[in-house]
Design a protein around this nucleic acid. Structure first.
Lengths: 176, 176
DNA sequence: TACGAATTAGACCGATTGGTCTAATCCTGC
DNA sequence: GCAGGATTAGACCAATCGGTCTAATTCGTA
């Protein structure tokens, strides 16, 4: 609901109605709507890290392909949600101008994802799958950022093409 | 104000206070808050198109460099605003899930920007600055999308580095 | 079984929101 | 200079929001 409607457009009442949870319970477990939103991000990130675990540690694949598989799996997840893009991008854009807790949290999530991808790219450089002069960290940040842009466009168009085109371009370019 | 606070967090009252315009005037000129927001996007796009006019038609520069100059000028504009990213990305993310008028409008703006850049890239292919096999439209869409992602990250970090790294990567990769 | 803590339940609240309304005022063309 | 539409002015409104409160109930443990 937070992904589809965004933070402000999603009322607590709608969450309670959808989950059949009374207001007393909600405010017993969550300090506030902000606390709720931040914890939804935590939950979202559990899924992201599970996906990273699964893909990036698959030693049967070369490291570069592992990274690609992660994003392809993410695209598949987007599909099941109706191509609404990424929750981090959505909440980050909406709230980072008025709420530093969200801004920091989202930035931290991005940098964590990039950090894990950096490791895989470093391995790819070592194997010679990426040019020796490649800066793994910069390339990982770049991938995450461009992915988010493609995800935004996907949200506008309800169409996965921007995600695919972006991955094609990135992996073709990175390895030369 | 829309860029910093987003659509929902920005109240009409705050706009009226900041501009010293009474509510009667506002609702005489705008049908609703939605109408207001859509017209702010129109105004924003006037600036974007002015920038495109200025950069993309500068025949003293090779076409690829003209495109790059446009984005560098855009980065400079972001700087004056405190690195809050792009209004299209902000409103697009926040509203596209609940308001089709905004979703279509923002998507239209993106595709218009990409369309104009496509022309410049086509010229670059013709001159041999880009490989013959390059698909100018795909490359233009890609550039716009990745730019938006970098702009989002810039908003999270209040730092222009993601924009610069993205441009560096794109123009280095595109021309090979 | 009994007792205290955790949780549920939802009526209720003040604040704020986008939007309306009517009267006053301004501006323009005759 | 006057007639009449355009615009200004801001008090006002219903609806909705996040959040509080207290009483009832459930749960875990001794």
């Amino acid at each position: 609901m937070l992904l589809r409607q965004g933070y402000h457009a999603l009322g607590i009442a709608a969450v309670l109605e959808a989950t059949k949870i009374p207001k007393g319970s909600f405010y017993h477990h969550f300090e506030s709507k902000e606390d709720f939103g931040l914890k939804v991000i935590d939950l979202y990130m559990e899924g992201v890290h599970a996906g990273l675990d699964q893909c990036l540690q698959d030693k049967s694949l070369p490291p570069l392909l592992r990274v690609r598989r992660f994003f392809e799996a993410t695209e598949e997840k987007y599909r099941t949600e109706g191509y609404l893009g990424c929750l981090l991008g959505g909440l980050g854009q909406e709230l980072s101008g008025i709420n530093d807790a969200f801004r920091r949290k989202v930035e931290h999530c991005f940098s964590e994802i990039a950090r894990r991808i950096t490791g895989c790219l470093r391995e790819a450089v070592k194997r010679g799958d990426l040019p020796k002069k490649t800066d793994p960290q910069k390339m990982a940040e770049l991938l995450v950022n461009c992915w988010e842009g493609a995800a935004l466009r996907t949200r506008m168009r309800r169409d996965p093409a921007p995600l695919r085109d972006m991955l094609d371009f990135y992996f073709r370019s990175a390895s030369t």
